[in-house]
Write a protein that binds this DNA or RNA. Structure first.
Lengths: 214, 214
DNA sequence: AATAAAAGACCGAGCGCTCGTTCAATACTG
DNA sequence: CAGTATTGAACGAGCGCTCGGTCTTTTATT
C-alpha cells in the first residue's frame, strides 16, 4: 500500500495524443520538471506555454501532444508535488515507533521537508485556485491525505506511552496543525528566515505542539 | 493612536487624476467594495477592468481617473482588508486585561473575525503574489502588524498571572501561530466546516495554543 | 441676473498586444 | 508507405489602458 512511489503520469486522467505510453510518462516527467521551475520563478499566468515548450526542449505543438491544456499541466504539477511531499512524510513516519520523542522526530523530518520544498509549497498555495473545479477537488483530497498521515500517526499513539487519550476531533485538528505549521515555515518565510533558523523554528514549534510551552 | 479607523484612501501613495480629494475618498471606497466582491467571486485575473467599472457604476475611463492601474487597485483592496482585520483585532484586544482567560477570549474574538472575513483572508492569500514588489512589501508589513498585536499582547502577559515567562523568540512564534491558526479556519474551510463548528474549532485550538492538550 | 468661459468629471470605442490553442505541412521510423 | 511524432506560423478571443471628446459644475465678467 505504501511505498509504491506511484508515478501514475500515464493516467487516462489527463489525455494525450501520443500512443506510446512509455514515451508519455518519460516526456511528461520532463515537462513537469521544467514547468515547476518556471511556475516557481514567474507564477502560473506569466509563464507562457511557449516558455514551457522552450524550457522542455519542445515546440508548442509537441507540448500539446503530451498535455491537453495548460490547466491540465497545472494539475500534473500539483500532483507531482503532492506525491513528493507524501513520499517524504511516509518515509519520516516509517521509522517512528510511537513515542513522544518519535513524534518530535517526525515533526523534525517533516519540517525539513517543508524547508527543502518551500518553493513548491508556496506554489501550491498560489496556484490551486486556477485549477478547474474537477482537478481542484482532487488536489484538496491529496492535501488531506498528507495531513491524514499525521492524524493516523497521532491516533496510533493516543493513550499509549504516557500519551494522553485524544478524541477523534482533537487528533484530527492537531494533525492539521502540524501540517500547517510546517507549511507556515514556507509561506511566511519572509519573516521566519529573518528571525529563526530552521532548527530554532523546529524546536520551538515542537514544544508548542507538544504543549510544553505553558 | 488606536481607534482612528484610518481611511487613508487619499494617500498620494496611489495616484489619481481627480482633483477633489473628498470625491476620491468616497468613490474609491465604493470602487474597492465592488472590486472585493468581484475578486472573491472570480479571482483577480478573471475579473476584468470592464467588470469592475460596470459593478461600480462607472465607465472604464472614469475608473482609470480614480485608479492608475489594476495592480494599484489590487493594492488598495489588500490594504482595505488589512485595515478591517486590524481594527477588529484591536477592538478584541482593547478589553483584554492580561489573564489566561482573557487570552482565550481574544483568540475567540479573533477566530470570529477570521470566520466572518474568511473570503477576504483567502483572497489575500491568493492575490498577494500579483502585487508589484513595491506594494507587496507593504502588504507583508501590514500582515506583520496584525501578528504583532498578538505578540505584544503575549509579551505583556509574560510572567504575570501564573503565565510562564517566555523569551522573545517564543513569544514571537506563538503570536504567528495564533494568527495562522485563525487563518487556517479560512483557507482550510473546505475541510474544517465539514468537521467542526466554529465553536468547536475555537475551543480545541484554544486548548492547543494554551498547551492543555498533552 | 445673464452670459461666457474655464475647469473638472465622465465616457466608451478602439488600440496594441499577449496568449492559449490549432492544424496543415514535414520528418521520422519500422 | 503507413503510421506516428514533430513543427511553428497563424488564429482570434480577450485583455489593460488611452484619449478625444461630451456633459456638468463652478467661476468670472458685464
Amino acid at each position: 500500500m505504501a511505498g509504491e512511489k506511484a508515478v501514475s503520469l500515464t493516467d487516462g486522467e489527463v489525455p494525450t495524443q501520443i500512443k506510446n505510453p512509455e514515451l508519455v510518462r518519460e516526456r511528461r516527467r520532463h515537462i513537469i520538471d521544467s514547468t515547476v521551475t518556471l511556475f516557481i520563478a514567474h507564477g502560473y499566468h506569466k509563464t507562457t506555454t511557449r516558455m514551457i515548450a522552450r524550457a522542455a526542449g519542445f515546440s508548442v505543438g509537441s507540448l500539446y501532444e503530451y498535455v491537453s491544456s495548460k490547466e491540465d499541466l497545472l494539475y500534473l504539477v500539483c500532483k507531482a508535488i503532492h506525491e513528493e511531499v507524501q513520499d517524504a512524510v511516509e518515509d519520516a513516519l516509517s521509522d517512528s515507533s510511537g513515542q513522544k520523542e518519535q513524534l518530535a522526530e517526525v515533526i523534525r523530518q517533516y519540517f525539513q521537508v517543508c524547508d527543502k520544498m518551500a518553493d513548491h509549497i508556496l506554489l501550491m498555495y498560489q496556484v490551486t485556485q486556477f485549477l478547474p473545479e474537477k482537478w481542484k477537488e482532487r488536489v484538496l483530497v491529496n492535501e488531506l491525505k498528507i495531513t491524514d498521515l499525521f492524524v493516523q500517526a497521532l491516533a496510533g499513539m493516543s493513550g499509549k506511552n504516557n500519551f494522553p487519550v485524544l478524541d477523534e476531533k482533537r487528533v484530527n485538528l492537531v494533525g492539521h496543525n502540524i501540517s500547517v505549521l510546517g507549511q507556515m515555515w514556507a509561506f511566511r518565510r519572509w519573516h521566519m528566515k529573518k528571525n529563526f533558523t530552521l532548527d530554532q523554528y523546529t524546536s520551538i514549534q515542537t514544544d508548542f505542539i507538544l504543549g510544553l510551552l505553558f
